[in-house]
Design a protein around this nucleic acid. Sequence first.
DNA 1: TAACTGACGGAGC
DNA 2: AGCTCCGCCAGTT
Length: 103
Amino acid sequence: MNEPTKDEKIWQVVAAIPVGKVASYGQVAHMAGLGRQARYIGKALGKLPSGHSIPWYRVIRSDGKIAFPVGSEAFEVQAQSLRAEGVLVVDGQVLIRQFGWRP
DNA sequence: TAACTGACGGAGC
DNA sequence: AGCTCCGCCAGTT
């Protein structure tokens, strides 16, 4: 079998984020072995195939905000999806612990 | 082919 | 706390 591509690797990492938690692009990039290619994460998520089961909405920026402009359709979908999992989102800011974050 | 862009991040001011 | 600049790297124009 062919090895997972970078995109698939990223999707796999994103899929490993527990429900109710989030991870930053940089964190996902690091976990996927891509180092500083944080930008590639967004690209890979944009390539998501139809019928996927990837919780792309659990991926946010390093500053804890959603990567889309407030008010955009994608923003609403992401914010609502997160809220559905018990994550609080106020003005684009995600108010929960990140995956891998420990008190 | 060169320049620009982008669901980013971190450092500098 | 907010803005700017630079780095990364692959895909587009």
